[in-house]
């Protein structure tokens, strides 16, 4: 099977500042690939290299089997920029019509259908769109021509939860139809429900590529229990995967790696009034990768 996105030693320096170093990555057809990393890690640099907006310092990249310099291939890609800028007096549907025409045509019905799904008002002038509406127009233009590859840079920023939900449904439909998605995010929570694999990039280097299921196993989670009476600290010490236990009267705070099973069973011996479990903190996963996986990642790259 030919990879949809394939890079080899892809490197980009902005003068002396490193943007991305030695990225070797393959994304297969029909896959949703989450590209994770903190701001400034190199996600946008990678994406802009794939779209030939910027040119690599060294290394190479192919998209849909063609070199990124091949102009025609871009008609088969849907792209949502990370910092989408839309301006001017033109109305949103006229702008979408222009993009559709250049890419070889999209039916008016298709644009309206997407606008309906995302609840976007396309009669507004581009310069007056709110941030959320801008993002919706950006999504519509990326999805409307049913591209074989979608490259979405921080697609959910500025969207309200309802629209985010609809967007994720659209991503799943794309996968179901056998097409491919590359989406970046700095929040694992945004991609973990749709992505098959995630790549984690930090300071310009790809530090890990993991199955989402495996990543979730590794995730570090902060958990808080509140009981109806003070609890002894000893009851929670030495549990597998439980760290940083702090007991203050009737409340317990700790960090868990992987499964919460042992902790839940220990807590069940007391009367639980309230429980808070935060989403896995991606930053801590990065830290985990730095401390434990760094040697392996370097060897693998």
């Amino acid at each position: 099977m030919t990879a949809v996105v394939e890079t080899e030693g892809l490197t980009k320096f902005y003068g002396t500042r490193k943007g991305l170093e030695d990225l070797t990555l393959q994304i297969q057809p029909g896959e949703v690939f989450g590209y994770l990393g903190p701001n400034g890690a190199g996600k946008t640099t990678t994406i802009r290299l794939l779209l030939d907006v910027i040119r690599p310092t060294s290394g190479r990249a192919t998209v849909l089997g063609a070199d990124t310099r091949d102009t025609a291939v871009r008609g088969r890609i849907g792209y949502l920029p990370g910092e989408l800028a839309l301006a001017g007096r033109e109305r949103a549907h006229d702008f979408l019509g222009f993009l559709a025409e250049v890419r070889g045509g999209v039916s008016r019905g298709r644009i309206d259908e997407l606008a309906d799904r995302l609840d976007a008002d396309l009669s507004i002038r581009m310069g007056q769109l709110s941030k959320g509406n801008k993002q919706k127009v950006g999504l519509i233009q990326a999805f409307m021509h049913e591209p074989e590859l979608l490259i979405l840079d921080e697609p959910t920023s500025g969207l309200d939860p309802l629209v985010q939900h609809e967007f994720l449904a659209m991503v799943r439909e794309v996968r179901t139809s056998g097409r491919t998605v590359l989406m970046s995010s700095h929040v694992l929570g945004e991609v973990q429900n749709v992505a098959d694999r995630v790549g984690i990039v930090r300071a310009g280097r790809l530090v890990a590529v993991e199955d989402v299921a495996a990543l979730r196993e590794r995730a570090v989670r902060h958990v808080e229990f509140h009981f109806d009476a003070p609890v002894p600290k000893e009851a929670f010490e030495g549990l597998p995967g439980v760290r940083d236990v702090v007991v203050e009267g009737a409340s317990l705070r700790c960090t868990i790696d992987g499964r919460p099973d042992a902790l839940i069973k220990a807590a069940a011996r007391f009367t639980v009034v309230h429980m808070v479990s935060s989403e896995p903190d991606l930053e801590e996963i990065f830290l985990t990768y730095y401390s434990e996986e760094a040697p392996r990642a370097h060897a693998g790259a």
């Binding site: 871009r74 008609g75 792209y79 920029p81 800028a85």
Partner: peptide, 10 residues
């Protein structure tokens, strides 16, 4: 920033 989308057209 509006040129970004234009240069990624075919």
């Amino acid at each position: 920033g509006t040129l970004e989308l234009t240069v990624t057209l075919p």
